[in-house]
C-alpha cells in the first residue's frame, strides 16, 4: 500500500516551521519533510513516503540482518551434498 524508498539525508533546514531536508536516492535528490524524525542528522538514512520521512533507518540492524542471512547461506553452502540430497 505504501511505496517507501530509502534515501540519505544530505541537507536539513527549516521552512514554514517544519524540519525539511534534501534526500539523495542514489543520485536523485528530492525535497522531503523530516518533521517526524526529530533526531535525524545529515548523512543518516530515512525511508521516504509521499515526500515525508517516516523512519530513521536502523543501519546497524540492517547490517545485522544481512549478515545473519548470509551466514545462513554459508552454512548451507558448506553442506552441498545435503542440500542436493534434500532437493531430490
Amino acid at each position: 500500500m505504501c511505496l517507501g524508498i530509502p534515501g540519505k539525508v544530505v541537507e536539513i533546514y527549516q521552512a514554514n516551521d517544519m524540519k525539511m531536508g534534501k534526500v539523495d536516492f542514489g543520485g536523485v535528490i528530492k525535497e522531503a519533510c523530516l518533521e517526524f524524525l526529530p533526531d535525524i542528522q545529515v548523512g543518516e538514512y530515512t525511508i521516504i513516503h509521499v515526500g515525508f520521512g517516516i523512519s530513521q533507518l536502523d543501519e546497524e540492524e540492517a547490517q545485522r540482518t544481512l549478515e545473519m542471512l548470509r551466514e545462513m547461506e554459508m552454512l548451507a553452502d558448506e553442506l552441498p551434498e545435503l542440500d542436493q540430497g534434500l532437493q531430490v
Binding site: 524508498i5 536516492f25 542514489g26 543520485g27 536523485v28 528530492k30 521516504i48
Partner: peptide, 12 residues
C-alpha cells in the same frame, strides 16, 4: 543508469 533507476524507484 543508476539515477534513472533511483528516479523510477522513487516514483514507483
Amino acid at each position: 543508469r543508476p539515477a534513472v533507476k533511483a528516479a523510477c524507484e522513487m516514483l514507483g
